[in-house]
Nucleic acid binder design. Structure first.
Lengths: 193, 193
DNA sequence: GACACAAACGAACGGTCGTACTATTTTATA
DNA sequence: TATAAAATAGTACGACCGTTCGTTTGTGTC
């Protein structure tokens, strides 16, 4: 890999950290330059615009999410175990970076602002929900869940449990947040049987 | 009411609208001045700092939430009907302003930034969760719910349903979002019996 | 109508924003 | 090691940021 590529990845890594706390709009070139100990212009030369940078930050996050959450979970046995693995890793992902899941932060920033950033984020989230839904359907096929479960609805509810985890953990600093989340998931999965 | 007070309230009303879409940090004095057709300085004279303005925006939102959601729901019959009323009005609140529930937007902006703004928001959210939890306890007292229900846990799960509604409605523009949310609540409440 | 005060304004401050240039340094290749 | 290319730095730009200031306009009271 060329030095430029290396630097770029270093930049994107730091950018993702920062964006997770101050948001993807709050992320500024100057601040990012300080954080990476580069000049603004030297850093900026790696991207054709701020929007392009933001887009690459989102894509970096997606790639990382795929590596840390999706792919490992897909190596777990089909059905319920795989769903639990997804959820566990999802929670770990949420607590990985200083500011929590960058997609959550971005969602509430971008949901009302049309543009490529929003489109990318929406696509990413849809994809993850699809993955979740498919895992549920597999669990039905495997006989782990009752056959007339509404997989989309269950995915919705699981997503809700995750989001509440963010709230309780990040804003309320509730030390029971993790237990609350896993209990809620347990309950949902048990009811699905 | 003095003219100054009237103007201030007009400003705060618009500020709340804007903050619901661009966030409470994204809200700028200049933009707000344009939206209210005032000069920056004339507007700023009503507040001692930007942070003070933001704080008052949050307080305005709290007052409105109390008027539109909490108080009306508390006039409903004790127990399950009151919980349903809370949830219905909560959903309506989410769809009231252009950018959705301002507390949700603020939560994901402020959760990692210490300060008075964060403290106020956290207190507000705790209060609402408490209200929700009390309503659940009342439903248990009334015999609507099973006596060994974990009220805190149920409040957590209801909150999750609401947050997922935001995601599906705002980001995914899912036309089934409302049904998903009410179905999820139905399911939770039915299981609590 | 004179007066005091409240309310809003316009201009300017030092900073930071994203971005466009040119210049310099570092890296890779012949 | 010379040279071209790539990577980084420096400087400057117009726009907007939150904030301060002195001034003007509006409002209500004697």
């Amino acid at each position: 890999m060329s030095k430029g590529q290396e630097t770029k990845e270093r930049i994107l890594g730091r950018a993702l950290d920062i964006a997770s706390t101050v948001g993807i709009e709050g992320l500024s070139i100057g601040e990012l330059a300080k954080a990476t100990e580069m000049s603004k212009s030297g850093l900026f030369a790696h991207f054709e615009s701020k929007e392009a940078l933001q887009l690459e930050v989102l894509e970096t996050a997606s790639a990382e999410f795929a590596d840390l959450v999706v792919k490992p979970a897909l190596r777990e046995p089909r059905g319920e175990p795989r769903i639990r693995a997804m959820f566990d890793r999802w929670l770990a992902w949420e607590t990985l970076r200083t500011g929590g899941c960058p997609f959550m932060a971005a969602t509430f920033e971008l949901d009302d602002r049309p543009g490529r950033l929003r489109d990318t984020l929406e696509a990413t989230q849809r994809e993850w929900i699809d993955t979740l839904t498919r895992a549920i359907q597999i669990a039905m096929d495997e006989g782990h869940f009752h056959p007339d479960i509404d997989a989309d609805q269950l995915a919705y509810e699981i997503y809700g449990v995750f989001m509440a985890f963010h709230l309780y953990h990040r804003l309320l600093r509730d030390s029971d947040a993790r237990r609350r989340a896993t209990d809620a998931l347990d309950y949902l999965l048990r009811s699905a049987k």
